[in-house]
Nucleic acid binder design. Structure first.
Lengths: 223, 223
DNA sequence: AAATAATGACTGACTGGTCAGTCATTATTT
DNA sequence: AAATAATGACTGACCAGTCAGTCATTATTT
């Protein structure tokens, strides 16, 4: 239930942009866009794509419904832009920060830390869940995400681990072949939280640490 | 609920008249139900709950729309029964087959084999995906599934692995604490297939074997 | 056997509500 | 006045759920 009361409510949006200006500044336009996307994230992640109502998105963004259509041509595009806008930047950061000769242990540690700090409990977790649950119905999104994040992530992991494998770390070769095994507990954490979080909370931190422990305990080179 | 017991039993009770069409046999009713559920699986898994049309379910089942409502009171219940009916029996089988003193390696092997043969590529995979993607919007289903399958599965795994841990298998204790780590690659396999299956198929068999290899390589007792 | 009566599983046209998307109108700035 | 941004009432398609009616089947009577 969005409170539709107070008509004259003085919203604290810095750039009100009023009803019109000869040309809105790009910053104001961007800000509006961001506000709409934030509202969309909330509504979509609460109800899923099909059951989400654009009336709710508009209300939550403090905007009229018609305004949405000034920024996005239709519901599906809004949804796609939503996923695009939240997930793209994160991976870039990790890739950028990874020097080509990072030790595998450090890389893995950084990888998991990034997930803990940048995804867990943030809007990105909700986006990720949205992607997981709706992605199969939006091939464009799945393809985009695969191209921009997944395949590049795989290459990144493989690059680091193949070197480790050549240096004799036994399980590195296996992980390099199936980087999904490295990521799997993160995915499960997101799903678990969405399904059973209320009933039976999961110690995600503990689980991820346990996972790394399992991997690295078998990663020690044989003496 | 009229329990139609054996007719020859109590004899002429206030029987007013025995005219008319007889009640459909339980087998026939069950069969119809199964047909409707099969159609529902197809339609729901293709479009998701909200976007699935009961007109389509009816058409696919070769039945009029009104007939659906003779078997299920509404769309949501149909959906819930769908998930219930497909997933419940599987776990029972695994639990039943597991003797209390099974060696951990054998148990794990059986566990993964079961997933490969009973879930991968079957309707159960589609149901599982449906559960993952829609479950958060159906607390009843999530709770049911947690109670009937997940928590029992956890206990089963813990039972086996705790014994192993006491016998000195080093990583067994960790896995017993987070059985999710054992299952994670299966979940990822299902999600990967739904999102990227077309773009970039995953060698699930290979991945699962690799996973078991990683786990058991660190499970060897230290000499 | 044939006619009659009763039954209930099944049907599908219909209703009422919902919601994505539109557009005439209004407000604001130059 | 002209250009632009924003609005929100409105429309039309869509669909879950309903219900008056059909028909095959079975029991009873003649």
């Amino acid at each position: 239930m969005t409170v539709t009361g107070a008509p004259a409510a003085g919203d604290n949006i810095p750039v009100r942009a009023g009803r019109g200006r000869r040309k809105a500044s790009p910053e104001a336009t961007d800000e509006r866009r961001r506000i709409i996307l934030a509202a969309a994230l909330d509504v979509f992640s609460r109800h899923g794509f099909a059951a989400a109502r654009l009336d709710d998105v508009a209300a939550q963004a403090g905007v009229a419904k018609g305004t949405l259509y000034l920024y996005f041509p239709n519901k599906q595009t809004l949804f796609q832009e939503l996923i695009r806008s939240y997930l793209s930047p994160l991976f870039d950061k990790l890739a950028q920060e990874t020097p080509p000769d990072v030790p595998p242990q450090a890389f893995i540690a950084r990888f998991f830390e990034m997930f803990r700090t940048q995804v867990l409990g943030t809007e990105r977790q909700r986006i990720l869940h949205l992607l997981i649950s709706e992605g199969s119905r939006f091939p464009e999104i799945a393809e985009f995400y695969h191209r921009e994040v997944v395949s590049r992530g795989i290459e990144l992991v493989q690059g680091v681990l193949r070197r480790a494998a050549q240096e004799g770390v036994p399980s590195a070769a296996t992980l390099a072949q199936f980087p999904q095994l490295l990521v799997a507990p993160m995915i499960v954490a997101v799903i678990w939280d969405s399904l059973f979080g209320r009933i039976h909370p999961l110690d995600v931190d503990g689980m991820l640490k346990a996972h790394v422990r399992l991997l690295t305990s078998s990663e020690e080179p044989k003496p």
